[in-house]
Design a protein around this nucleic acid. Structure first.
Lengths: 122, 122
DNA sequence: CAGTTGTTATACTATGGATATAACAAAAGA
DNA sequence: TCTTTTGTTATATCCATAGTATAACAACTG
C-alpha cells in the first residue's frame, strides 16, 4: 500500500494519512488484524514528523478503525458501530450532495458514481 | 431560511455558514438572484463577528455559489461548472463512502440515503 | 545487551480562526 | 443635501491547532 503526503494540499498531514488508511481498509489493501507501520517508520517513509503520524493513529483509534497494541503496534480493528456510521454518513452526504446539486449534477449521475466507487471497495 | 451557528461544533463558523447556505440553495430556500443578508446583519443575527460572515461570503464567491454586487450585496449566482463539481464530488464521496464501508454500511443503503436526500432537494 | 516499540512530556514556530476598531467610497432613503 | 447602510480594506490582538524538534521511559524483540 502506497501512502504519501501531498505537501501542497491544504489538508492537514494527519488528515491525509487518516483518509488514505481508511480508503486502504475499504479497498481491502489492509485487512482486519493487519499491522500498520510503526510511527517512526511511516514518518520517515513519507517525510514528516513522528508525532504527526502518531496523531493520525490516535484519531484512527478514537474513530474505531484501529487498535493500538503495546507489542504489535497499530492493528486494523473495526468497531462496526453501524448506527453511528450511518448518522455520520448522512450528515456528510447532505453537504457533499448539496454542492453537487447546485452545480447541476443529477441524481442518476450520483448513483452511478456511488456504484463505481463501491466496485473498488469490499 | 434559518441560519444558526453551533458554538460547540469543532467546525469553523465560516464553514458552518457556507454549508448551510449551500444546503439552502440546494433545497430551493434560496434561488438564483435572491439576495443574502448583509454581512453586518447576518453577523448580528447569528451572534458572530462581521468578518467571519465576510469570509464565508468570500469563500462562497470563490467557489462559484454567489456573486458579490456593490449595490445589491451577496446574490445567489451559480457558475454551473459541472465538470469541476463532478471531480470534487468523486473525491469527497471516496472518503465518505470508505468510512461507511469499513463500518459495514451496504451499497443499497447508500443508494437509499442518496435518493432520500435528493427528495429534499431540487 | 542493544535496538525498537508505543507513549508521554515539553518547547517552539507558524498558520488560521475569530474578534475588535477603524476608515473609506458608493449606494439608498428620507 | 444629509444620514444611513452597504461592501471593502486595513490593522491588531488573542487563542487554538498543526507541525516540528528533543528527550526520556517502560516494554517488547532480536
Amino acid at each position: 500500500m502506497f501512502i504519501e503526503i501531498d505537501f501542497n494540499s491544504e489538508e492537514a498531514f494527519y488528515i491525509q494519512l487518516r483518509n488514505q488508511i481508511i480508503i486502504g481498509i475499504a479497498t481491502n489493501q489492509f485487512r482486519e488484524g493487519d499491522t500498520l507501520p510503526s510511527v517512526r517508520q511511516l514518518a520517515e517513509n513519507v517525510g514528516i514528523n513522528m508525532h504527526t503520524v502518531n496523531k493520525a493513529y490516535s484519531v484512527l483509534k478514537q474513530e474505531g478503525f484501529i487498535r493500538l497494541d503495546r507489542r504489535k503496534g497499530a492493528v486494523i480493528a473495526l468497531d462496526a458501530d453501524k448506527l453511528h456510521a450511518m448518522e455520520e454518513l448522512e450528515e456528510n452526504l447532505r453537504v457533499v450532495l448539496a454542492r453537487a446539486v447546485c452545480k447541476g449534477v443529477a441524481e442518476e449521475e450520483v448513483h452511478q458514481m456511488v456504484s463505481e466507487i463501491f466496485r473498488e471497495m469490499c
